[in-house]
């Protein structure tokens, strides 16, 4: 429990910490995980722009990686990748 009693709550039910949903890890929803083959990747960033979470991280020189804390395993990235550099691997 982030706030214990009604006296501890910020007034007006506001959420004062921007982006605090990162404390909630949606990665547990996943049953398949995307695995990127960096050798195949052409760094087009289509997976990055299309990930709903976002859980594709964009790095130097447009390299990409998956943030498994949040990736829900939807498979959009694998489906959209023009060079099939992403494979969905079962986690079950």
């Amino acid at each position: 429990m982030k706030y214990k009693t009604w006296k501890d709550l910020p007034i007006g039910a506001v959420i004062p910490e921007p982006g605090s949903s990162v404390e909630y890890k949606t990665g547990t929803w996943r049953t398949f995980k995307p695995v990127i083959d960096q050798d195949k990747c052409i760094r087009c960033l289509l997976c990055w722009v299309s990930c709903p979470e976002p859980s594709i991280r964009r790095h130097e020189e447009n390299r990409v990686s998956v943030d498994y804390d949040f990736c829900k395993g939807c498979g959009i990235c694998a489906n959209i990748c023009p060079v099939k550099a992403i494979e969905m691997v079962s986690e079950l």
């Binding site: 949903s21 990162v22 909630y24 949606t26 979470e53 949040f70 829900k72």
Partner: peptide, 10 residues
């Protein structure tokens, strides 16, 4: 927009 939201996968 931070991740950790609860929109459906996809």
């Amino acid at each position: 927009l931070a991740p950790g939201h609860r929109l459906c996968a996809g």
